[in-house]
Design a protein around this nucleic acid. Structure first.
Lengths: 220, 220, 220, 220
DNA sequence: TATGAATGAGAATTCATTCAT
DNA sequence: TATGAATGAATTCTCATTCAT
């Protein structure tokens, strides 16, 4: 995105068009919704343009093709979750509480951003074809793992956590517990004939996941 | 063009598998691969016909439309996993071992049937639209949950398992731990820059998941 | 083109559709006109379908893409002129008369088939990209050159023609004399402000070309 | 982006070539390449702007539209060849040598300016639509024909050339002999499987053409 | 003079589906 | 049961051109 000083419209007035940054953002927002709702294959450039309130041609002007638009959307989605994760400040937290908060954060983030789940599914369907072309992705995730490794280490030193826990394995487990429940809630609630998204159910799930992970981690 | 000379079964021999059955099976097999590889939106009827070695028109003859073909594929996939699960015979097993085997089974099944994962993702993308039309699905899954409930109960009575574990929650957790790891392995191995499908990695994952679940369940 | 026995309609009745060979021929005819009139870049698949009286999709069914349709058209055009050339039977002709007839044939063929000229121009604009992929082209043209070489040889032995004339050079000259006049007649008649396509002009041109070539060839 | 500091001409020095002129020339140069490489239909205004290192909008500022840009390019191309032809000074030359030099000049000009050939092809494809709108074209070409007529006349009077040769016919023949060979060299070298652009081949062709024309013209 | 942003009308190509046999 | 021929409606992407500054 080109960051030049645009004629910053006064509060309240929509800065209508001729604003490259704004247009690009609108396209990315619309594309996120569309890709999340229909997958890469099912997404329609027409609908993206319409949702963005912009001419279809402009999408190609800023983003080469459907595929590279998809990558741009994906990168922004990852940036977003990792950025929010960073704000958790797990480093300063007491280990048990840190794990509790990481689980809750992951759960709430997926709950608030269901698009993120379907986006990842799409990308996996395509064997991470787009992500593998990304240059920024690699550096984005290691801090998270380092932080988690630190929490586990501190917990162990304090005699609270069991030893030898691989932070990557644990992260995948924590994510997977939320991901599968929320990402597959449509089929799950159909085959188990049970509402999985009611307030009560959500509270229970978070509680179950926390019990599960801490029941495993905490030495007594 | 499939010009295989069928043995034109004489009375008494080989009473099943007329060409019609065979054709339908071929179509379902081809469709499974195609839907799994490209999702519902990305799947191509042409390719399915080609993979099945049959004329495209025939697909419509046996299966109304792309959508109902998808449902047929989905139902068969669920039948398959539930049928294999039944053969686990968890009812007779010692509780801890039963859980251990359920985890291992789920893991190995997903590993052997990656199509199942992408199929479910597709169906969830479409909000279980197809599954909800199915009549047979509901009855298919309750036995599994009942069996698991039994295992948990027996484990609790034996003083081995903790009390108050919801079998549906636990089943979702067990499935999710495998599902997320295997279904998202392309993005995960990209962002964590780590091979998740090597023999060593697979063994470690199964071990981690078993520790996690039993570490939670088992009271000491 | 698949040559199977089609339900050969009775004389007078148009064998309407469902006739693969006929459809392919119609497409090729329409494509020839369109490519000739607008060049490869300017040709429109829509118009070709319309001219052929067939669905656009069918063009792709029979001919992969615009480019391979172009090649198919080109090959057929070459086949056509070389086939007519063969019927000239120059081998049996007296040398001077043979040359005379070759010039006249070339001239009249270009005159009757102006599409051929623009087609070749298009292909040259694209540096013979399509033709180079053709497998049949190479064998198609050598007979012509061999025949011409024979005529020159016989003429020389009879003491009528000069020695050492390269048949390829001569063929290119004969073709070029007609080609440039007819292919560029629009610009030429504009810049010289002179009607080049009137009956009189045509007769004069053929006469001039014949004089030119024979004036050079014939030893006196 | 062309950011060359123009010498901001002081009074008396360098009165011409403001940026405007330079920009127009850049556009024409770029357009010539583009039209020659892709034809009128295949040429892209975007690429012309890029090649010229200027904004696309500027093209429309100076040249109404793609079509009139094409005409401008065409006119400049004709001006160029006629201007060089004039410098041949055939009037003062001995007739045989004059013809020889005209052939060689035409050949070498086409060889050095292959764009000219494809440009003419494009214009003929469009039936000289653009050229017919030009006001300057008509006056541009008659001097050439007059000069050639003079040469033929002098040659005849000297008893060297045959009588009754139409200068327009002869000019078209001379041009055509080079034009077809060079303009169609891609298809010709493909179908005859022979390198037509090697040094040796070029020398032979010029020699052949000269022999052909003089063999016809010169009375012995 | 010069430019980046934006667009409507098309371009080739694709796709699920139906027709006729 | 089986198939090749045919199609209408999209779908991605392109292009000459104009707007606003």
């Amino acid at each position: 995105m080109t960051t030049k000083n645009k004629p910053q419209a006064k509060a309240g007035t929509e800065p209508r068009a001729r604003d490259a940054d704004r247009s690009q953002k609108d396209i990315l927002d619309a594309a996120l919704s569309e890709f999340a709702a229909h997958g890469l294959g099912g997404a329609r450039m027409d609908r993206i343009a319409e949702r963005a309130g912009l001419n279809k041609r402009l999408i190609y002007y800023y983003f080469e093709s459907k595929e590279s638009l998809f990558l741009a959307v994906l990168e922004r989605a990852y940036e977003n979750i990792r950025s929010e994760e960073r704000q958790l400040n797990l480093t300063r937290e007491e280990p048990t509480e840190a794990i509790r908060r990481l689980i809750a954060f992951t759960w709430n983030y997926y709950l608030a951003h269901p698009e993120f789940l379907t986006l990842l599914n799409s990308e996996n369907l395509h064997r991470a074809r787009h992500l593998k072309q990304s240059k920024q992705i690699l550096t984005m995730h290691s801090p998270l793992i380092q932080t988690l490794a630190g929490v586990l280490e501190r917990g162990h030193q304090a005699g609270v956590f069991r030893a030898g826990v691989d932070p990557v394995q644990l992260y995948i487990s924590i994510a997977g517990l939320s991901y599968f429940y929320l990402g597959n809630c449509h089929t799950l609630s159909t085959i188990f004939d049970r509402d999985l998204l009611g307030t009560r159910a959500l509270v229970e799930r978070l509680s179950h996941m926390t019990d599960l992970v801490l029941g495993y981690l905490v030495r007594d």
